[in-house]
Design a protein around this nucleic acid. Structure first.
Lengths: 192, 192
DNA sequence: GAAAGTCATTAACCGAGGTTAACAAAGTGA
DNA sequence: TCACTTTGTTAACCTCGGTTAATGACTTTC
């Protein structure tokens, strides 16, 4: 997720005019912890680049449950594929878990640049490839691993995130309840 | 998955030399039901276009269990992202569920064409976008829906596939055991 | 610093799905 | 055709995780 960012654009030899347009079309937002950046159901044609902070992307079901798709750390980016590609409502919400700074860029703006600067093609192709790869990994975990195994994997691979995330949110990411996670931690070898 | 195929190449104004190269680098395989097209763990730098038949993509775990990632119908394509992008072993196997005809093309061949024919860039970008979108949908199902709900969704959306797929394979796709699926069918309103 | 909210833990109970096994039905092959 | 394998069904039992609720430790907020 981190190998395509605004810095790809920063390093581009844009014309002065394009540079100006791009910088202008770039909105920097400062958001408070708990505030919503993106609301499930809304059409949101923007791509967000997270400068600092932490954001969760989550589904909300009719019966009020929340399932976390993924966590976005500083340096990461996100946006609603369904909005951007199909002009439809976002399938998920984005909520800040910490006070955060994000840059929002309209996807059409990116597309404009894409058509003008062929160098970007590789970057965007690369981005979607990596996105597909990442999603494939998540699919694998959800399909093949037990909750316990997913927990242990997360502890290993995202150790740095552990202390920034509420147990409730971790449980929701793993697809279990906070109660189940609490029970599991006791039985597990890997603690905290 | 079906909006990018060899026909994208067929309709391209390739030079005679490129056309020849492309057609030559294109291997048509006829495979028997149950045979393996792609072996989990092997590095496989090819993309497969399924002309006819049915293929399952599946993970095999150490304890001998099989989990089905997805089914590929005629017209669909598949390949190991992990091989093609990272030059690493495939995370899954591909096994024919029916006698099938597939065309195999080396990914490097596609990349060559990509660099020569900018029109293909849009097609390949589009392909990876749709792949990401499809994976996102599957992620949603696995994270948010119960086995019962996934079963009913599959019945609705893939009705045509139902009679071509063994119940064991469907169960494996849903992430449950055949026994559980058999039980579920009884309680469910939607039969067969 | 008291009141109100938020989180993690624990216990009791329940249900969905896993496991094993036995059996029936349907393919498959010499 | 007759054995053999592969599939689907059903039952008995068990485990994991969901649900609810009570409790205590924290933060916030005024």
């Amino acid at each position: 997720m981190n190998n395509f960012s605004l810095s790809d654009f920063d390093s581009l030899p844009l014309s002065d005019r394009d540079r100006l347009l791009f910088d202008q079309s770039n909105t920097r937002l400062t958001v408070k912890k708990k505030s919503k950046l993106l609301n499930q159901g809304d059409v949101c044609p923007e791509i967000y680049f997270l400068r600092s902070g932490l954001v969760k992307l989550c589904y909300h079901t009719l019966d009020g449950k929340e399932y976390i798709k993924s966590f976005i750390k500083e340096g990461g980016m996100f946006g609603s594929l369904n909005s951007v590609l199909n002009n439809a409502g976002s399938t998920f919400s984005a909520i800040a878990l910490e006070d955060s700074i994000v840059d929002a860029v309209a996807y059409t703006r990116l597309l404009n640049l894409l058509s003008k600067y062929p160098q970007l093609h590789t970057a965007s192709l690369n981005f979607f490839q990596q996105l597909a790869l990442k999603k494939e990994m998540r699919e694998y975990e959800l399909l093949c691993l037990s909750a316990q195994q997913r927990y242990e994997k997360f502890c290993r691979e995202e150790a740095a995130l552990m202390h920034r995330i509420k147990q409730t949110d971790l449980a929701s990411y793993l697809g279990i309840t906070p109660v189940a996670l609490s029970r599991m931690k006791n039985k597990s070898q890997i603690l905290i």
